[in-house]
Design a binder for these strands. Sequence first.
DNA 1: GTGAAAGCGCTAACAG
DNA 2: CTGTTAGCGCTTTCAC
Lengths: 330, 330
Amino acid sequence: MATIRDVAKHAGVSVATVSRVLNNNGYVNDETRKKVMSSIERLEYQPNELARSLYKRSSKMIGLIVPDIMNPFFPELARAVEDIATRKEYTFVLCNSDDQLVKEQKYFNVLKQKYVDGFIVVTSTLTAEHTNGMNVPIVALDRPIAKHIPSFMVDNYEGAKIAVQHLLDNGCKKIAHIRGPEQVYNAKLRLQGYIDTVSHYPWFNENLIVTGNYNLSLAKEVAIKLLKNNPDVDGIFAGNDVMAIGVIKAAEELGINVPNQLAIVGFDGISLGETTSPTLTTIQQPIYEMGSKATELLIKIIEKDRTLQDDLHVQYPAKLLKRQSTQRKA
Amino acid sequence: MATIRDVAKHAGVSVATVSRVLNNNGYVNDETRKKVMSSIERLEYQPNELARSLYKRSSKMIGLIVPDIMNPFFPELARAVEDIATRKEYTFVLCNSDDQLVKEQKYFNVLKQKYVDGFIVVTSTLTAEHTNGMNVPIVALDRPIAKHIPSFMVDNYEGAKIAVQHLLDNGCKKIAHIRGPEQVYNAKLRLQGYIDTVSHYPWFNENLIVTGNYNLSLAKEVAIKLLKNNPDVDGIFAGNDVMAIGVIKAAEELGINVPNQLAIVGFDGISLGETTSPTLTTIQQPIYEMGSKATELLIKIIEKDRTLQDDLHVQYPAKLLKRQSTQRKA
DNA sequence: GTGAAAGCGCTAACAG
DNA sequence: CTGTTAGCGCTTTCAC
């Protein structure tokens, strides 16, 4: 690989001049510029980004920390982040935290040693305590971290209300909720939306709320238990789509017809919901949009863009996506 | 952030000494070592990896190039690569190529400028022509690149034969195939497996082979057409699971019962296949295993490990995973 | 055993 | 307009 020195020699100028034409800064005579340009071409010179980064203290890399890329919610997010990052000439590093604080911190450390420029983080464990003092821009996604850290989220509370209201509108007489993990903030908000929509009904009671793990198998398990204990439940709002599919599976196993005997609504709007039978009614999050906007903001912060807005907590409206799991033929 | 110079000053030694204890090489007195260690702790010193990389001409980064992380086959692969990379203290960069040569090449370039140490690549467009001259270790996954580039693949041909044989064993009298994209090598192998299993049957004809794109919607479309034109088809082998689900959807739309009127087998073994109704019979690839072994090999090559074997083309056996889409109740 | 110094490849004063 | 030079933070000869 040719270095800037080789180019300088070849063009008969100093490295400073080459650097100037490379970065398009400082004056340089048109003639010399051309000479340098042609030397660059001849030698197929590509600047060493590492050397650049070392000097600039910035690596043009951003990290995306998600709980687990195998959870179908995240690939779309990752894709959005990568698309924007690449467009802005940043390199994108994917990190799976498994929702463990230690892993998150390890990634922060490792990448900071490489002068990473910023992070987009989906976390339930990281708090202001951890992020303060870590001298690098952070944007939160899907789950908030602290007031002073920008965040991009869907309106989880309203989304949940819409979901449950949709079940009521469909004639459901007793609606249960499978909530997400205790420590996940958006799970709390969705639960609250459920409670606030149904708590004044006479049939409502605490046993209608069971806890899942945002994954399929556990949701299926608890759904089976729930449906056995409460045979009159005719509507379930699941905390996310994956769990909703677990509920579909549970109903299947119990010989309960969806949607006629049991209507189901999920949350997220991942494409998985289109592949099931019946297809899944859900609350759609603008996943790609959130990912790309978060990335754009992060890069603005990194580059100290003047057009930065003050409102750094963006909340997207939740949208009901009606599909078969709530389309009763009755 | 403290630098090596700060540590040296604090410990009253030279930077060379600090470097020696850091890298555990060269002689250093036990006393001085302890002093240095404690200074490192006191100052919370973390070496700057970029500076290191610049000198070493190696960044401890590997790139994973896949067509599209949103395709459910790849998250598991990515996860495997990341797990191993992290364990071996490498950082992992995810790149989506959309199966476009230019994007692949762009990533190669960008990352090489950062002294990336190697690549794991899933590609249909990259050939020896492109990889020669690019002076960095490469391992191919899922699809071969050239004889001199190590590769990890499942036995696509045998897998296809097993799939089709399974349909025959289930009593299917006319089996069609939805093949993957023309340019994808594994699609060719799977097609060949199909052909070699059924070509001697009197019912076999070319119209039973239609081309999909490894995605759901097109597969569904062509499946509908196929089933309308050939109402007597009672078995379909789809080139991958996603397309197989498209076939399930197609059957649903046409009011064809799966598996009783139509048995379906996919290929890949992604978890998506467990969420459908009926669940999908498929040929399982050891995705995580392939990803992790490929990563381990890549790192061995990078580190010039002596235990390197000669056999650099690993082929995993394909395994039939029987689920509902072929369990006839007849 | 330890330190001084050169250099990885690049950028940015500072002179001229 | 252009060249010289001093770093960015680290590793590694080469002396002592």
